[in-house]
Write a protein that binds this DNA or RNA. Structure first.
Lengths: 139, 139
DNA sequence: ATCCTACAATAGACAATGTCTAAGTCAAGT
DNA sequence: ACTTGACTTAGACATTGTCTATTGTAGGAT
């Protein structure tokens, strides 16, 4: 069931009810929740869980590389548990819907050495922006 | 001198001292300031300019397409006046330095129809992340 | 040159998101 | 079952951004 939870357990994490709940809320594909959304869902299962714990736990999962932090809109960051299959994001500028997408080719390879300015590049983030079909219909 | 100011004037903008100062602060290439940084610099030239005016003016320039809003770090948005030459960004994860870069190829073309889910895609943002030479030296 | 008026600027309250601290609680090894 | 260090909590605080009511002013009309 919970791949995420299994991986975290395997890393020697001290397992607490709070961490379990956060991991369960994030489990699955195509999940892109904000920290507050994660908190809201966690509270339904564990009413006394605090905001700080949700932030801490999400931060730890990001550090461990089990969850990816996505800043698609300059508002709240979103947390994406699909960390082990490289992918990019497609965002609706009207309703904020997010889809995982898989562009062809390697964007990393598209940046010539002359354009790297001596940086050691570790990853590339691609965000496609547009309007989703249901928003386009109700334009 | 100020291309940005010229373009804004040409659009029938009502020219005020505040707008002039904000445009002057943003003028130039490779400028990626946050709203507060813009305000800080504007204040040195026009001490009574308010935060709200800076935010309003930046927002209008973005709406007019003369300035691009860049969210590289999930913290404060940055404002990039280099709006008329398509480019992407290279960001240092340690010190936050930003460089404009020009990847080869068209990232838009790399997204197959089957991965567009009916979206009408209007633009693509690519962010390369890594460590800049001077941060690498002081690791 | 002066007057009008709509648009712009201001101060400061408010909102959203995220971080930190001090004190209490608990998972897990012994 | 202890003990201990890691975890959690509530709430203050910090940062970034938005809104409102009021005052000011650019630029056209007279």
């Amino acid at each position: 069931m919970s791949d995420l939870l299994e991986r975290l357990r395997g890393r020697g994490w001290r397992m607490t009810a709070q961490r379990r709940v956060v991991a369960e809320v994030l489990d699955g594909d195509h999940v892109h929740l904000t920290a507050d959304e994660v908190h809201a869902r966690a509270v339904t299962r564990l009413p006394e869980i605090s905001r700080a714990t949700v932030y801490n736990t999400l931060g730890e999962m990001v550090t461990l590389g089990e969850v990816i932090e996505v800043a698609t809109d300059g508002r709240a960051k979103r947390y994406d548990p699909n960390a082990h299959r490289p992918h990019q994001h497609l965002v609706c500028g009207r309703c904020g819907a997010i889809r995982d997408v898989h562009p062809a080719g390697d964007p990393m390879a598209d940046l010539p050495d002359t354009e790297r300015f001596g940086f050691t590049i570790s990853n590339v983030e691609v965000t496609y922006r547009g309007i989703c079909p249901s928003c386009a219909a109700t334009a």
